[in-house]
Design a protein around this nucleic acid. Structure first.
Lengths: 354, 354
DNA sequence: TATTTTATGCTCCAATCGAGCATATCTGAG
DNA sequence: CTCAGATATGCTCGATTGGAGCATAAAATA
C-alpha cells in the first residue's frame, strides 16, 4: 500500500512557505506557564487546591497553583510541574496528566498590547487529601464553590432554573450578527444542550462547555473583568460561582470534566482513596465526582465483578450497621484488562424539567 | 457546603513561593510551535498530510506541517494554526482539535545545551482529501507507512511476531537498574499490553504507547538519532516504519489514537466523508480508521438506529450489485443526543497469538 | 439467462445492566 | 436485654443492547 496521494501538488515544496522549527523559538516571545488542578475528595466533597492570588491585595482572587516552565531546569513539563508544586505547596503529586493548553487568554487586549503573552498548560492531579501531611500553602475548596450549577447531589441545582436559564434564553434571543456564522450551533441550542434545558439530558462531563457559555453570555465575573461586551448588557447580576484569576476557572472546569469522564473508563478513583476502604466509601467518592446517586447493589456487583478490588480480610466496624468488608485496589487489573473503570450509567432522567 | 479544608496550612501564603504569571514570560525563552496532523481517508486508506523537512537536504525526513505561533498575529492557537496551514499547504481546515503539548523533545541534549527550546502543540485535523482542490504542498501518506504494526486490515501484521516481539522480550529481559522504579509497569508487561503479546487483547487506541515503547527500546530510528543508549545495543535492526522529523511521529501517533477513540463516541467520521455517501462507504471509512472488519448488517442498524444519517432519496448505481441508497449526515443529531458516535465493539479476539 | 455481487430486512441469542427483594449483622435507644 | 434502625451483602428478574447469521432484493456481468 503506502501510496502517496496528492491534490495537484508541487513535488518540490516552496522554500518561502516553510519554517524551520528553530524559527519558532525566535519568533514567539511567549512564556510557558504550568497550572495544576489538584483534586481530592474530602468528606464526600470534591475539592481542588486553591491559592490566593496576590496580583491585587485589595481584591485578591482565588487561583490554581501555577508556575513557569523553565526548560533549562526541567526536561519534561510534568517534571517541572511536580517540582514547583512541591516547592509551592509542599505536596508530592502522585497521578498527574496533561489537560489542555490555553493561549487565548487576554482576548480583551487590544491589538498592539505589549503585555507579556503567556501560554498556560493545564494539568490535572488526583491526590488523597488525607495523605497530604506536607501541605504548607493553599486551601481545599469545593468544586461547587466555583461551579454551583454542577452540584446535582440534591437534585437539579436551583441556580439553573432561577438564574441561568432565563438569562441564557434572553441572551439567545438577542439579535446575533456575525457570531452565529462562526458558531456551529445557535445560542439557544447550545444553552439547551449544555444545561439540559427543555427536557434535554444533563451531561455531567460538559463542565467546560457550560462555563464557557456563561462566559460568552457575560454572566461570570471573568467576562466583565475581561471587558466582554456581552457582560455590559446585564444589570443586577447574581453571583455565578466564585471567580478565579485569569483563565484558571476554565482550567479547573476542564479538570472536572476530565475527571468525570476518566473515572468511568480508567481506575483513577483509587488515586483519591486511602489504601483500604469499604465499597460504600468508594461509591461515595464516585458520587462526589459524578453527582448522581448510584444503585448500591449494582455498584458493588460492577466493581467486584470487574476485578477492580480485592478484600483485605479485615472489616470496618462503627459504620452504623453491619461491619463492612475492607477492600484494596487490585493493581493487577491494569495488566489484565485494557481499560477498566467504574462504569456507571446515567440515572433515569434526574432532570427536573422533564 | 463550600468548606475550606487544609492540612496544617499557613493562612498567609509565602511570598517566596509564589510566581506571578507575568514572570513566566520572562523566565522561559521558549518558542511555541504548532504541529498539524491532517488526516483523511483516500481509497479506504487512512492518510496524513506530510511535508518534506529540509533540515538536511541529503537525508530529508518526513514532517508534519508545522509553524510557529505568534501571539501578536493570532489571538488563538487554532487561529494561528489555520492561517499557516492555509499558507503552507493551501488547505482550509475544517474540523480541528488540540491533541497534546510536547516539550520533552531533545531529551538527548546534554544539560547546558544552548539549542533553542521549542514546545510543540499538536493538533488533529480531519478533512476530506477529495475536497481539497487547493493543495499546493505536501503529500498524503498512509498511516501504516509510519506505523506498519498498526495495520490489522489483513489480520495481525507480521512485523509484530517477526520483528517486534522478540526484540521487546529481549529488551525486557535486560537487567533494569533504575528505570523499573520509575515505571509503574515492568517492561515485559508494557510490551504485552501494548502489542497484545501472549494472548492479551489488542487495543487499537494505544498507538502512542506502542510508538513510545519502541522508542524507549531503541527500535525506531528516532531513538538512534536522539542518541538513546537503548538504541546502541541493537545490531542489524530492520525498519520499524518510516521516521519523521523531531517528535512528529509521536504527534501523529497521538492523532491516530485520538481519531480511533473519538470516532466511537462523536460523529467525526463525517468530517472524512463527502456530503453524500452509501452506508458501505461509511463503513469502509470507519474500518480504515479502526482496522477490524465490522459486521455489515449491524453497522447499518447501529448507524441508522442512532439517527446519524438520513437518506437523500437517491441511489448510487455501478456499485457492482444492487444500487445502494445514498445518505447524508443528520446534523440535527448533535442537538438531540449528547454523545453520538459510531459505536463498534471489539471483534472477538482477532489476536493471532491466541 | 445464469452467476456474481452488493444491499437490506429480520430473527435469535448472549451479555449487560437497572431495579428490587431478602437476609445478615452491627449500633444505639429505651 | 430487646427491639428498632441502619448498613452490608447476596440473589433474582426483566428490559435493552449488541453480536451473529439467515434470507431476500436488485443490480452488474459473463
Amino acid at each position: 500500500m503506502n501510496m502517496e496521494l496528492s491534490g495537484r501538488r508541487k513535488p518540490t515544496p516552496e522554500k518561502s512557505h516553510r519554517a524551520s522549527e528553530a524559527d519558532a523559538a525566535e519568533q514567539s516571545p511567549v512564556g510557558i506557564g504550568l497550572n495544576a488542578a489538584i483534586v481530592a475528595v474530602v468528606d464526600d466533597e470534591p475539592v481542588a487546591l486553591a491559592v490566593r492570588s496576590e496580583a491585587d491585595a485589595a481584591s485578591a482572587t482565588d487561583a490554581l497553583p501555577f508556575g513557569p516552565f523553565n526548560p533549562r531546569e526541567h526536561r519534561t513539563l510534568e517534571g517541572g510541574l511536580r517540582a514547583w508544586v512541591r516547592d509551592q505547596t509542599g505536596l508530592d503529586l502522585g497521578y498527574a496528566e496533561q489537560l489542555y493548553t490555553f493561549a487565548d487568554r487576554g482576548r480583551h487586549l487590544e491589538p498592539g498590547d505589549q503585555s507579556p503573552h503567556v501560554v498556560s498548560i493545564g494539568y490535572l492531579a488526583l491526590t488523597q487529601a488525607g495523605a497530604q501531611h506536607g501541605l504548607t500553602n493553599g486551601v481545599w475548596r469545593s468544586w461547587y464553590h466555583y461551579y454551583p450549577w454542577e452540584d446535582w447531589r440534591k437534585g437539579r441545582p436551583e441556580i439553573i432554573a432561577r438564574d441561568i436559564e432565563p438569562r441564557l434564553k434572553a441572551w439567545a434571543a438577542r439579535t446575533v450578527t456575525v457570531s452565529a456564522v462562526q458558531n456551529p450551533l445557535a445560542r439557544a441550542d447550545r444553552a439547551r444542550m449544555c444545561f439540559g434545558l427543555d427536557g434535554t439530558a444533563w451531561d455531567e462531563e460538559k463542565v467546560l462547555d457550560r462555563y464557557e457559555l456563561l462566559y460568552e453570555a457575560g454572566l461570570v465575573d471573568e467576562a466583565k473583568r475581561d471587558g466582554r461586551v456581552s457582560a455590559r448588557e446585564w444589570s443586577d447580576l447574581p453571583k455565578f460561582g466564585v471567580p478565579m484569576q485569569t483563565d484558571h476557572r476554565r482550567i479547573l472546569a476542564t479538570a472536572i470534566g476530565r475527571t468525570r469522564a476518566k473515572i468511568k473508563y480508567r481506575p483513577v478513583v483509587f488515586e483519591l482513596m486511602p489504601d483500604e476502604f469499604t465499597l460504600y466509601e468508594l461509591q461515595k467518592t464516585v458520587e462526589a465526582i459524578l453527582g448522581p446517586h448510584l444503585h448500591k447493589q449494582n455498584f458493588r456487583r460492577l466493581v467486584e465483578g470487574a476485578g477492580l478490588v480485592e478484600p483485605t480480610g479485615d472489616v470496618k466496624t462503627r459504620t452504623g450497621g453491619r461491619p463492612a468488608k475492607l477492600f484494596r485496589f487490585r493493581r493487577e487489573v491494569l495488566l489484565e484488562r485494557p481499560a477498566p473503570g467504574v462504569r456507571v450509567s446515567a440515572p433515569p432522567s434526574r432532570n427536573g424539567t422533564n
